[in-house]
Nucleic acid binder design. Structure first.
Length: 529
DNA sequence: TCTTTCACTTA
DNA sequence: TTAAGTGAAAG
């Protein structure tokens, strides 16, 4: 849209491409030159790496961020507040995109709240099985995404490691960073094939610490003040008195909330410092069509968690990186419009994948490492600490030629990433819970990592979700599932994620048979536990 | 710390 | 009217 506007705007009064041509050239040549330029302009501004995403209610996010955002996680799943909403521009209006979110560990620490501040309490628990939340409108055209805010408000967080609903699983008292991924869908409304392009946007102000109950009163107050659903807790003498009476309390009408409010009002200085949340990064062209930019979100070396683990003002505030996949066969086909919980009004719009655990690669200065990527990708549940530097490419791949293995959808670089001094690489293994078939493919499986990935790539069907049953990936080369057979892309590689509208999924019986391809499809729910 | 229950709210 | 989302508080 923007590109079109630009393209259209240049011609009348702007510099025409024909301006540099000889006057003797024909009008036809002039037209052709203009056409080429216009195409170039359109291509440039609509290419995946130029897609712009602006965080909605950034000032609100910033208020929370400055107080160190906390997000409640519950067994049943809890929404995030503030909600993750973005305004997307510079998409090709006619191209189909898939928008999804994953939430990766921001570091390898466990936290505690002492003396009214967050402190490091030890080493992080092993990362939970990464899951992705695919926006329910996916796949949709750029015009659709740009038409209005893209809201991920129905995304839910849980601390239930065996969560059957497809919610994003987190560890309590750990710090996380949500990431937005914009994936260009292929002709099959899928992604993950060798030509799949995608970009990742990270808004550092959306980082948070997961908690089972709020720790910081300032956060509690911000939630109450800003979340409509918490209106019942907003401070007023009447309200607090009402609450105390209803609960049979004998304590003073000056409630905890009131005290909090009064305390907070005395030292609240949450005015935003950031300017408009815009994409200000400058993609660097990496080999094999990889693009990335950004800065580390935190300095993990610091001993001051308050000042460093929730980095404040930073410009650009938005980290993003973009990739185009050419050398791998990983392929995810999307069926995001099918509900995960088809009978649930809420669940009907929820779509989850899994993404890989990540902190070890997301924050620290591990060099870009093919082996590590594949291994982590393959160890969704194993939380394997993979050594970097042993890969064939190592750091050179960071700035030069990424390996084939790395250059694939499933190994999308994690948050945060560094452009020069080693690129921590985040697996981006697909897990999701829509009724679509997920078929992650490991193009170049190596050693045992592939078999681990089979365990990783849990998939949830709407049917299983309704039963409260998670589904464990099974694979089968002998699968007769129509979804499976129909989801192979033309390159011969099964897609990672395939939409098969109206097709009930058939459990695949022999997951191991897909070991070399890493293909995953809907599984038999009975195997989850 | 975590889970469950509660009263209240929004949509 | 009802389903679902809130933080508080008890356990």
């Amino acid at each position: 849209m923007l590109a079109r506007e630009r393209g259209g705007a240049v011609r009348p009064g702007g510099i025409s491409p024909t301006a540099v041509l000889s006057n003797s050239q024909s009008n036809r040549t002039d037209e052709m030159g203009w056409f080429v330029l216009r195409l170039t302009v359109i291509f440039f501004f609509q290419s995946i790496e130029n897609i712009k995403a602006v965080l909605h209610e950034r000032e609100l996010w910033k208020k929370f961020h400055e107080a160190n955002t906390e997000m409640i996680i519950t067994k049943a799943g809890r929404r995030m507040f503030p909600s993750y909403k973005v305004k997307v521009t510079r998409m090709n209006p006619k191209t189909k995109y898939i928008l999804l979110i994953d939430i990766v560990p921001a570091d390898d620490h466990r936290y505690k709240f002492c003396d009214n501040k967050w402190m490091i309490a030890g080493k992080a628990e092993p990362a939970m099985p990464g899951r992705l939340y695919v926006h329910p409108d996916s796949p949709a055209t750029g015009a659709h995404w740009m038409r209005q805010l893209v809201s991920f408000q129905k995304l839910k967080l849980t601390n239930n490691h065996l969560d059957p609903f497809g919610h994003i699983i987190l560890n309590s008292m750990h710090k996380y960073q949500p990431r937005l991924h914009i994936v260009k869908a292929d002709e099959n409304n899928a992604f993950g094939s060798k030509n799949t392009a995608y970009c990742t946007h990270v808004f550092h102000e959306t980082a948070f610490i997961s908690v089972t109950s709020y720790q910081n009163n300032k956060i509690t107050q911000l939630k109450i003040e800003n979340n409509p659903f918490a209106k019942g807790f907003r401070g007023s003498e009447e309200g607090d008195l009402r609450v105390s009476r209803l609960q049979g309390k004998e304590y003073s009408v000056i409630s905890k909330n009131m005290v909090r409010q009064r305390l907070l009002s005395s030292h609240s200085h949450l005015a935003g410092k950031f300017g408009a949340g815009v994409l200000t990064g400058h993609p660097q062209v990496l080999s094999s069509y990889q693009y990335e930019t950004g800065v580390p979100l935190s300095n993990s070396d610091s001993q001051d968690p308050m000042s460093n683990h929730f980095p404040q003002s930073r410009d650009p505030s938005l980290l993003y990186h973009c990739f185009k996949h050419r050398d791998n066969a990983r392929h995810l086909e999307l069926g995001c419009k099918r509900s995960y919980l088809e009978t649930s009004s809420a669940g009907s719009e929820e779509h989850y994948f899994r993404s890989g655990p990540s902190y070890e690669s997301s924050l620290l200065s591990h060099p870009y490492c093919t082996e590590a990527i594949t291994s982590r990708e393959a160890c969704m549940y194993g939380s394997v600490e993979t050594e970097c530097g042993s890969g064939p490419g190592d750091t050179d791949e960071l700035t030069n030629s990424p390996s084939i293995n790395c250059n694939m959808w499933a190994t999308m670089q994690p948050y945060p990433h560094y452009s020069v001094e080693g690129v921590p690489y985040q697996p981006f293994t697909a897990h999701f819970t829509s009724t679509a078939t997920i078929r992650p493919v490991v193009p170049h499986p190596t050693s045992s990592m592939v078999s681990r990935s089979q365990v990783d790539l849990g998939v949830y069907t709407s049917a299983s979700a309704q039963k409260g049953l998670p589904v464990i990936p099974q694979s089968s080369s002998s699968s007769s599932s129509p979804a499976v057979s129909g989801s192979r892309d033309r390159s011969g590689h099964p897609p990672l994620y395939h939409k098969k509208p109206g097709s009930p999924f058939q459990p695949l019986r022999d997951f191991s048979a897909y070991a070399t391809q890493g293909t995953i499809s809907i599984q038999d729910p009975s195997h989850q536990y």
